[in-house]
Design a protein around this nucleic acid. Structure first.
Lengths: 225, 225
DNA sequence: ACCTGTCTATACAAAAGTGTCCAATACTGT
DNA sequence: ACAGTATTGGACACTTTTGTATAGACAGGT
């Protein structure tokens, strides 16, 4: 049914003879794919779009990646390894006080060369329509919370207290929206000690606006009785 | 080039004769489309998907909507009218004090039957890859901020102070992520008075963790000098 | 000069999605 | 029951996108 392709000739003399043409690598495909993922979302990560931006033929893609799905998997691997490892490293930095340690944690997010917030949010959005991605997000969140809790535990907070403060810090960083999308995390937030609930934004029933007063105090101060 | 379709017969006796078959309306198409928009994002709002869920033929769609694009436009109109009007109405509710008025504002978001946060975020995500949607989001944000500022102004805050507090309240409600996606709003946040910047999360450079202490005080208290 | 492995281009196939046409069907009023 | 209108289904055309087959181009070693 399928005829063999006719012989091909590079018969367009106007076309650059590839002199000085920088070779496209697997990394290039990944980088452009990641850019599109962050700026336009997973649905826009298309083989044709990337190949056009790289100015190579679409089919070259299949030399580097088995399929479109394998590219997306590679992006996910990259994201999970990089972002989660960065948080762990920042949490493990030596610090004289818990306040200094929390500041180290913040620095991880402030420097765009470190933690890639855009990528993290893009993956979170992706997870909304893909259960497997959601599972990886949840796993990554668990790992990160564990690392942050370990940071508090180094300064003699009890396991429970360290855990609660880790959730608050992480939530504050991700913002309300990320939490909305991550049911597993949301469930954990719902079980926070009552006196720490105020500034999570969940306790704003109208009578408790004042509860927001306690952000830094609640995170850094010793536990109440 | 196109042959006329052969005559058709409903020749499958197993098929329900549509007795008791509730007629599908334009509203039904819109409702399912909105559900998919909220749960899976704009890219998944497809004619075939909706028609399958409604258990009608795909082509029936074109009786109610001129095209796929017209459906998306209708969803956008719905969103803009409903959510923005709700915020205005809550801001205009009579209240004895500014604290009570802010609590009214919060109620709008707490009750899921009122403001549809999921829809708002879905539209914000959509806006990331569509300039026209972004323009409508920005217009809606401006209108909402104006309404919130008017609420503060009713309690004798100056125009500038009312405006600053409106931005803080609205930002707190949308969360960090929504702000990230809305350049116009972000630009306005950057021009807030310095003494109100602390708890926006933008000032966490490490030395200023304590600045978060002032949430309710900054929003509700009289201006500092 | 020739071979070999690596990368790229063209052609083809197939699937999914949108939009159009028209006949079939359901509903409404008489 | 009948006619006319509103709504739906089936076939088709077109586009976008993924995936496959195979030949061409190129660089380095022999």
């Amino acid at each position: 049914m399928r005829r063999p392709a006719p012989p091909l000739h590079r018969d367009d003399p106007k076309k650059e003879p590839l002199v000085g043409h920088v070779k496209v690598t697997r990394e290039d495909w990944l980088n452009v794919a990641r850019d599109i993922l962050v700026s336009d979302g997973e649905a826009e990560v298309k083989v044709l779009t990337i190949s056009t931006r790289l100015e190579v033929s679409r089919s070259s893609f299949y030399w580097y990646f088995k399929s479109h799905k394998h590219l997306l998997d590679a992006l996910l691997d990259e994201w999970e390894n990089w972002n989660t490892r960065l948080i762990r490293e920042h949490c493990e930095l030596p610090a004289p006080t818990i306040t200094a340690a929390v500041c180290n944690f913040f620095r991880c997010f402030i420097d765009p060369a470190r933690f890639d917030q855009g990528l993290d949010f893009a993956v979170r959005e992706w997870a909304r329509r893909d259960g497997k991605v959601r599972a990886r997000i949840d796993r990554a969140d668990s790992a990160r919370l564990k690392d942050i809790a370990a940071m508090f535990a180094r300064f003699d907070y009890s396991a429970d207290e360290a855990d609660a403060r880790a959730r608050i810090l992480y939530f504050q960083q991700l913002g309300y929206h990320a939490l909305e999308q991550t049911e597993a995390l949301e469930d954990r937030m719902a079980r926070l000690p009552h006196y720490l609930l105020g500034f999570t934004g969940r306790a704003h029933t109208g009578d408790e606006c004042d509860a927001l007063n306690d952000f830094a105090r609640a995170v850094l101060a010793p536990p109440q009785e």
